[in-house]
Amino acid sequence: MSFAVRAVGLVKRFPGLEHPALDHLSLDVRVGEMLAITGPSGSGKSTALYAMAGLISLDGGTVAVLGDTPRGRAGWAALRAARIGLVFQEDWLLPTLTARQNVEMPMIGVEPSGPRRDARAHAALEEVGMGAMGDRMPAGLSGGERQRVAIARALANHPALILADEPTGELDTGNSNKVMALLTALNRQGTTVVIVTHDPQVAGACGRTVRVVDGKLEEGP
């Protein structure tokens, strides 16, 4: 069995907090899986996701992603650029760039050809149903549209793993369903998807759910 993520004994302490955000948390995510991580607020579920993306430094434990154990910021940055797509609760689109240029952003340094970047960005926007809105500025898009552009940005470099932190947290039900449909479709195409969520409906759409409480893992049904 091959793993998209193998997290072993993760420990993360934040200054000023009595209890660790991650307390020897271990978690495996299989390639092709769609996994939901749930848990109460402050339980450490988002911290676990950011650890899988190499966006926080750990106080203990190891994370292997797609067979790679990057070292340092540069190693993680290279891995994220090449193989990991990230989606956040907020879209974090750059307000000075069009939708297509936002999608192009992760390709800078990965795809040297400008026209190819443009074509791939357009294809990614088509994939999320936003092909016709590539020239719009983020300010001219609705919340759901912006989140779909953010997903297109995560798809820009054809990642093998998508890590999503509350991707539907700020969306209404209609847009939430659209986003989940997109992520589910990507998973069906073979992309491993890990979603941190509070929403039981979102968790229900995933093949497996794990629950994090006090920085430790509780396997769900």
Binding site: A82, W92, I108
Partner: peptide, 16 residues
């Protein structure tokens, strides 16, 4: 800060 953070999150190295 958010824009700069997303640059790092999508894999831009610090130098870029």
């Amino acid at each position: 800060r958010g824009e700069i953070a997303i640059m790092g999150a999508v894999g831009w190295p610090r130098g870029r």
